[in-house]
Design a protein around this nucleic acid. Structure first.
Length: 482
RNA sequence: GCCCUCAUCGUCUAGUGGCCUAGGACAUUGCCCUUUCACGGCAAAGGCACGGGUUCAAAUCCCGUUGAGGGUACCA
């Protein structure tokens, strides 16, 4: 069998949607799994929806996730160009070829007429379909209109009888009656091809062997097959992956919150986590492992194991994956990734080593990188808090004062600046005072962090250093005396 | 409306006729660990949409119903 060639063909309409990226991922994984090629092609045939800078956003997102491609607009390849707006003549030529063969025809109907026709059809509870008015135009009439520069489109002449079926690699046999397929526009009045024409022509010339796309494309597949047949080309294999849905089971869209890859990056999600999570939306391994790197996925991904039912994008699970990856990358690595988020919050990091020490203490509590500032701020600035925070539930002001004074003495006198001696000294101190360790450790921790939830008192003490700890203890004592 | 697709715990899923008393993960609840919050450990609760067949045997195959999603553009 010849080499597998698959493609990701997004239209440049902004920050790529995670649903689209999931499709890109499946294509990429299939290519890597089979040792084939993964191609990126920009489908910019809709001049209206075009958004500046989208190409870059698409490349950036793929790269951020670690998805690489073998041919594409930026790197070229044997079938360049990989941007449809640069291949216009090709589509034009092929549309005309179909017109000559009598398999497509010019249509001069105005959008108003079309709109009107549809409304009447809908009112009559009939499926809206082009009525083929222009099919009956004589060659002379057509020529006259063309000469008069009347705007036109080219439509595919869809057979009205018979069936079109195909075997979907994920779903099995899918069949459509040709009578329900409309005469699809191939070339728009602005001279640009529609998606349907462009993608067939490109997939053919780019030698695409497998079209892996989302379920929303199933109903246009018969049109595509008709086009392959009309050109006398061999169609590729089709695989329609399930949709990515919102929690309300509708198509995931902006109104459901974050949907763009860039958004997830800004929310502090790790690419490893997003990839792992997205891959599991519609695919699962045979065994019960949940953690897969991109490489692991490429090794095991198989189209046969892709599910058919739509999958809900569950933020909870994504959060869990993200927390998992945060806990499992090295602290140095995490510290690096956290810097941009700290800086954005106005926290300047000058001492990398110190940052790593701090990060180690919050690593197991962090769910997203965006939480880093609130988790780490007290390591960089003196905490600001209410004095009530210092007093544990089962304690009082006087006991707390005594405890803090004792802490001060212990810290002051501590020779070995290490965990065990510090813990031992502090616990002994509580015992000497005749109070529970919590009555001493809570105030200490609160004084150092200014938070009701934070890393432990011993760890924070050690990282902050003797001077800073004494300073903060004095500050706390000061608060209690007022 | 018409066409297509789909249907296992709340969610993602394992399951391809007997290994199913339906397994795992997230979320939830409880307990343990503990100075707080996490992490971690243990445990619990929770599902084959419904109705008919086929078969010695069905979550698995067939038919129907219901429900959900997608499509129905000179958008992709």
């Amino acid at each position: 069998m010849s080499e597998v060639r698959v493609r990701f063909a997004p239209s440049p309409t902004g920050d790529p949607h995670v649903g689209n990226i999931r499709t890109a991922l499946f294509n990429y994984l299939y290519a890597r799994h089979t040792g084939g090629k993964f191609i990126v092609r920009i489908e910019d045939t809709d001049q209206v929806r075009l958004k500046e800078g989208s190409d870059q956003a698409i490349f950036d997102s793929l790269r951020w996730l670690g998805i690489s491609w073998d041919e594409g607009p930026d790197i070229g390849g044997p079938h360049a160009p990989y941007r449809q707006s640069e291949r216009l003549e090709l589509y034009q030529k092929h549309a005309l070829e179909l017109v000559e063969k009598g398999m497509a025809y010019y249509c001069f109907c105005s959008s108003e007429r079309l709109e009107n026709m549809r409304q009447i059809q809908e009112a009559a509870k009939k499926a809206p379909m082009y009525d083929r008015k222009c099919l009956s135009l004589t060659p002379e009439e057509i020529q006259a209109k063309l000469d008069a520069k009347e705007p036109y489109v080219i439509r595919l002449k869809v057979p009205r009888e018979g069936n079109t079926e195909f075997v979907d690699l994920i779903r099995g046999k899918v069949s459509f009656e040709n009578s329900v397929v409309d005469d699809q526009v191939l070339i728009k009045s602005d001279g640009f091809p529609t998606y349907h024409l462009a993608c067939i022509v490109d997939d053919h010339y780019m030698e695409i062997t497998h079209v892996i796309r989302a379920e929303e494309w199933i109903s246009s597949t018969p049109k595509h097959i008709m086009l392959y047949n009309a050109f006398g080309w061999q169609p590729p294999k089709f695989a329609h992956a399930p949709m990515v849905l919102a929690p309300d089971r509708s198509k995931l869209s902006k109104r459901h919150g974050a949907t763009g890859v860039k958004q997830f990056k800004e929310l502090g999600y790790l690419p490893e986590a997003l990839v792992n999570f997205l891959a599991f939306l519609g695919w699962a391994p045979q065994d019960e492992r949940e953690i897969f790197s991109l490489e692991d996925l490429a090794k095991e991904f198989e189209l046969e194991r892709v599910n058919k039912a739509g999958a809900i994008f569950d933020m909870n699970k994504l959060d869990w994956y993200n927390g998992y990856y945060i806990r499992h990358i090295s602290t140095e690595n995490l510290a690096q990734r956290v810097v941009p988020f700290l800086e954005k919050a106005g926290i300047e990091v000058s001492d990398q080593e110190y940052l790593v020490e701090c990060t180690a203490l919050v690593q197991e509590r962090m769910k997203t990188l965006a939480e880093a500032p609130e988790l780490l701020d007290f390591f960089f600035t003196e905490p600001n808090y209410d004095k009530e925070l210092l007093i544990p539930r089962k304690s009082d002001v006087e006991t707390t004062k005594k405890a803090l004074i004792k802490c001060r003495e212990v810290v002051e006198a501590l020779e070995a600046w290490e965990h065990d001696p510090l813990e031992k000294a502090l616990r002994n101190a509580a015992e000497e005072l005749g109070i529970k360790s919590g009555q001493l450790l809570w105030p200490l921790r609160a004084a150092l962090t200014g938070k009701s939830a934070s890393p432990g008192a011993f760890e924070v003490t050690l990282v902050l250093g003797k001077n800073e700890v004494l300073k903060r203890l004095d500050l706390a004592l000061d608060k209690l005396s007022k």
